[in-house]
């Protein structure tokens, strides 16, 4: 296929993950993974879960890392926050990345704390020239401190801000352009946000800087309704990947060619075989697009 548009400028620096399907590493599955060494392209962990001094988490991750590529995914940096980045947290992150030398590091376009409190959620920000400048300064600082490019993940959101003057896609494209970071394209987030804000998903995806995509996330959502009775999708990570998200994933692969892809599941964790099955489905779609590229 001739529309594969990966450019070496971004993805070579921001990710060295294989163009295969990966899974989030869940403590409940670690024993089985270590015993059976399943054919998984890579594993992903949340950085903050491993910012502890020692014990089984590190013991297990060290053994996983010896056999698999690794993606470290942060959830606590608050890149979209009004406050300066927490330098102590950045120091912990730098130490973790030095210890495990992961093939990719990613974080969110969101904020998660304010005034010393941490909310353990990915909160939305308005898109204005001022918030853009701040987000870029934060990404610059992260990449400078970690001495590596990062991938920035597009958010799933439930509200918009009256003060926003930029489209989300413009905002993300500009962060990528100014900082040289890569994009972690969460196709579920894209779908959830488009439904929640009345946008057309394919137009949204095409307006993103797809050449900068270094990794894709797929996950499941929950369905609610807003006050007008319209669909309000919740980025719950608690169910299988939805059919609509698989279709968008195929659309994205058609644009990008094979791209490292993670099946994300953080709630109602099923048996490992179920997740392996979803990774297998992503793997089949990756193989199909790979044969098109080489044909």
């Amino acid at each position: 296929m001739s529309t594969a548009i990966h450019s070496a400028t971004y993805d070579a620096g921001a990710t060295a993950l294989p163009q295969r399907a990966g899974l989030g590493l869940k403590p409940a599955h670690v024993r089985q993974i270590l015993d059976t060494r399943p054919a998984v392209g890579f594993f992903e962990v949340h950085a903050e879960n491993y910012m502890v001094p020692g014990g089984p988490f590190h013991e297990h991750l060290g053994r996983i890392r010896a056999d698999y590529p690794l993606s470290v995914h942060g959830v606590g940096l608050s890149i979209g926050g009004e406050e300066p980045l927490d330098e102590a947290h950045l120091d912990r992150l730098a130490a973790l990345l030095e210890r495990y030398a992961p093939q990719a590091f990613s974080e969110h376009l969101a904020w998660s704390g304010h005034g010393g409190a941490f909310f353990n959620d990915l909160l939305p920000l308005p898109y204005t020239p001022a918030t853009l400048a701040r987000a870029c300064a934060h990404v610059d600082r992260v990449q400078e401190r970690l001495r590596r490019p990062m991938l920035l993940e597009n958010p799933a959101t439930y509200v918009e801000f009256t003060e926003s003057t930029l489209a989300e896609t413009e905002f993300i494209a500009e962060v990528v352009r100014r900082t040289g970071c890569g994009l972690l394209l969460d196709v579920n987030n894209a779908y959830v946000s488009c439904v929640n804000h009345g946008r057309e998903p394919r137009a949204y995806l095409q307006a993103l800087p797809l050449a900068a995509v270094g990794e894709i996330h797929l996950a499941g959502f929950a369905r609610q309704q807003d006050d007008a009775g319209d669909a309000l999708l919740i980025d719950s990570h608690g169910s299988p990947v939805d059919r609509a998200v698989w279709a968008l994933y195929e659309f994205v692969l058609g644009r990008l060619g094979p791209t490292p892809t993670l099946i994300e599941r953080d709630n109602d964790i099923p048996p490992f075989e179920v997740l392996l099955g979803e990774a297998g489905e992503a793997g089949r779609l990756l193989a199909a697009v790979r044969s098109e590229v080489t044909a």
Binding site: N120, D121, V159, E160, F161, T162, D227, D230
Partner: peptide, 26 residues
């Protein structure tokens, strides 16, 4: 203040998703 929904619906219902996420996850 300052929150809005594309269809003009009450943003409070949508903001409640964040409230719920924070409390439930913790």
């Amino acid at each position: 203040d300052g929150l809005v929904a594309w269809n003009g619906s009450d943003p409070a219902r949508r903001f409640a998703v964040y409230r719920n996420n924070v409390v439930v996850s913790l």
